[in-house]
Computed example of a mutant assay.
Amino acid sequence: MNIIFDKRKKYILEDDYVQLRPLEVSDFEILKAFGVDEPELWKYTLQDAGSEEGMKQYIETALTRQEKGTAYTFIVFDKKNKEYAGSTRLYDIDLVSNNLSLGYTWYGKKFQGTGLNKHCKYLLFEFIFEQLEFERIEFRLDSENERSMRAIKSLGCTFEGILRSNGYKIDGTRRDSAVLSIVRKEWLESKKELLKNKITHG
C-alpha cells in the first residue's frame, strides 16, 4: 500500500477539547516559557529544551527532520483553557514498512492529568491509522518514566519489552528504553471504541 503523506501539508487535527497544528519557527515565542519555567519536563527526554536556547534548538531540530520527511511535529492548543499546552511528534516515519513512532510528547504541568493527552492521542491514532493508513505506531520511552508508561498503556498500547542501553539521557548517561505499540487492526477492531469511551466518560 502506498501511503499518501505530504510533509509540506498543514494537517490540522481537532475536536471540542484540543487542536493540533503543525509546529512553526514562530512558535518559539509561545513555547519558550515551558523551557525556562518548567525544567522538570525534560528529565526523561532525549533532547534538553529546558532553556530558551534549548527550546530554540528543539524546534529547529524538529523542523529539519520534517523537511527530510522523517518527522512531523504538532503544537498542542487546549481549547478549553485557550492556551498552548505543549507539543507532540510523529517520527521515524517509514513509508516502506508503513510504520512510524509517536513521541517527543510533553505538556506543561497544568495540562497534565486533565484528559488532554487522551484527546490528542485519539485524534492522532485516528489520523495515522484511518486517514494515512499506517499499520503500526511505536512508542519508546525511558524505562524509568513510570508516569508516561502508565499513560501509554492506558491508551490501549501493548508493552513489548526493554531495549537495554540504547540511547543517552540528557545528562550523558545511558538509558534503557521501554517499547510499546498499537497496530491498525486492533485500533479498528476494539481499541478505538475503548479510548473513545474513556474520553467520553472520563
Rank of each mutant, 00 (worst) to 15 (best):
R175G: 07
G69W: 02
N81R: 14
T70C: 01
S154K: 15
E146L: 15
T88D: 08
R150I: 13
L41Y: 03
E52T: 07
T114L: 03
S101W: 01
F129V: 04
V25W: 11
V183L: 14
S87P: 02
I75L: 06
E29F: 10
W106M: 11
E146Y: 13
G113Q: 03
L23H: 11
R136Q: 12
S154F: 11
L90K: 04
S101C: 13
E189K: 14
Y11G: 10
W187L: 05
T88Q: 12
T64D: 14
W106A: 03
R184I: 07
N98R: 15
E186D: 15
K10Q: 15
M1A: 13
Y58N: 06
L141C: 02
E193R: 14
E83T: 07
S87D: 01
A62H: 06
W42H: 08
K198E: 15
N81M: 04
E14H: 08
T45M: 15
V96Y: 06
Y122I: 01
D142L: 02
K191A: 12
E52A: 09
K153D: 01
M149Q: 13
W42P: 08
E60G: 05
G108H: 00
S177D: 14
D16E: 15
M1C: 01
K191H: 09
Y104D: 10
F34S: 04
S181I: 01
R65H: 13
S154P: 03
K118H: 13
K185F: 07
N81I: 00
I30G: 05
E52R: 07
K191L: 10
R164F: 08
S177Y: 12
N98G: 00
I30F: 00
V96G: 06
Y168I: 11
S97D: 15
E38R: 05
A85N: 07
N166K: 11
F159D: 04
D16H: 05
T88F: 11
I199R: 04
D27A: 03
F125L: 13
S143P: 03
Y72A: 06
E144G: 03
R8G: 04
Y168W: 14
Y58T: 03
L195H: 02
V183A: 07
P39G: 09
K121W: 10
A71C: 02
D171T: 09
S101F: 10
G86D: 13
L123W: 07
L195V: 04
Q131C: 02
A71I: 00
K153R: 15
C120E: 14
G113A: 01
R21S: 11
K191F: 12
